[in-house]
Simulated assay, not measured.
Amino acid sequence: MDVTSRLEWHPLLQDPTRCRSVKPRASGITMVIDKGLGLHAFEDLLQTAAPYVDLLKIGFGTSPLYPTALLKRKIELAREHQIDIMPGGTFLEVAVAQNAVAEFFDMVRRLGFNAVEVSDGTIELERLRRNELIRRGREADLNVYTEYGKKLWGSTIDAEQLLETVLFDVQHGASLVTIEARESGTGVGIFDGDGQCRDEELLDIQAMLPDPGRLLWEAPLKQQQIDLLRTLGPSVNLGNIAPQEIFSLETLRRGLRSDTFRDPRRNGGTLQPE
């Protein structure tokens, strides 16, 4: 008999916040960006961290750079571990610009992707065209994640435009709307040129939306993750997490790291928005 199979940490030591749910989750989504992991590294990642990953993005337009068999295997492994996997939104923007959208969706389905990202971070996308892309994704039986914001340095969030985008995207079938921050996390969206969170703007956006749980905040830097968790709580949806940072983020979510630790003798032991 394998004695180790009966060994398990006490629940209060696994999750002092008592807030973390298991997959499939409706909140507390973690999206990881894969910028070129080989198959063995990908297998190791899933072996150790799959329970803490909900969505995986094959970053930018890297999908066609992989050997097809290798990419297909990565997709299969992700799906086996209950992870939505999709090409980066920039790749669909390339397809739009090259008038190859039908070919894009055909290949996405044939490879086995179960999700797609609709964005206009680099190109201009008319509202009707955006609706059409969301619809095509849903008709292809894909989970659709959309993105709001431009990748251009210094671009900010227009609250009214964001509200309209979220309402229309969700109405047409999007699961979540991602707030752009790029992989650098600096000078875009709610983050200033030093990567610091504009807290007042964040709270204004949160208060404005009828269902703020529909947002996924790109937050590649540790301090950004801490700020969002402290402000919005442990069940905030976070994205563009580097593979090597998955465990770090999970400990932050659960209060297992000093940055988000709460002493139950003083405050009830749960991580609450500050």
Results as ranks from 00 to 15, higher is better:
residue 96 V to M: 06
residue 85 I to G: 03
residue 60 F to N: 02
residue 142 L to Y: 04
residue 152 L to I: 11
residue 39 L to F: 09
residue 176 L to R: 09
residue 82 Q to H: 11
residue 178 T to W: 02
residue 174 A to R: 00
residue 75 I to M: 00
residue 61 G to W: 09
residue 40 H to S: 15
residue 178 T to F: 03
residue 74 K to L: 04
residue 108 V to N: 04
residue 76 E to L: 07
residue 110 R to S: 07
residue 80 E to R: 00
residue 138 R to Y: 12
residue 180 E to L: 01
residue 53 V to T: 08
residue 45 L to Y: 10
residue 83 I to Y: 00
residue 112 G to C: 12
residue 162 L to H: 04
residue 143 N to K: 13
residue 81 H to N: 08
residue 45 L to G: 14
residue 173 G to W: 01
residue 66 Y to N: 04
residue 54 D to S: 13
residue 146 T to M: 07
residue 40 H to T: 11
residue 139 E to S: 12
residue 155 S to N: 11
residue 57 K to N: 05
residue 59 G to N: 01
residue 160 E to F: 05
residue 47 Q to K: 13
residue 127 R to N: 08
residue 150 K to I: 09
residue 114 N to Y: 02
residue 45 L to C: 12
residue 39 L to T: 06
residue 72 K to G: 01
residue 80 E to W: 00
residue 85 I to E: 02
residue 157 I to E: 01
residue 140 A to C: 09
residue 38 G to A: 14
residue 43 E to V: 10
residue 119 S to T: 15
residue 129 R to E: 15
residue 82 Q to V: 12
residue 149 G to Y: 08
residue 82 Q to I: 09
residue 71 L to Q: 01
residue 69 A to G: 11
residue 125 L to D: 02
residue 172 H to R: 13
residue 47 Q to P: 04
residue 101 V to F: 01
residue 83 I to E: 02
residue 59 G to I: 05
residue 150 K to S: 12
residue 96 V to A: 02
residue 65 L to I: 01
residue 71 L to D: 05
residue 64 P to L: 13
residue 119 S to E: 00
residue 138 R to V: 13
residue 103 E to Q: 14
residue 69 A to R: 13
residue 109 R to M: 12
residue 112 G to M: 04
residue 166 V to M: 03
residue 158 D to L: 06
residue 155 S to Y: 01
residue 58 I to H: 03
residue 152 L to A: 10
residue 66 Y to V: 04
residue 57 K to S: 06
residue 133 L to W: 06
residue 137 G to S: 04
residue 177 V to Q: 01
residue 108 V to P: 07
residue 48 T to V: 11
residue 99 N to D: 10
residue 146 T to L: 04
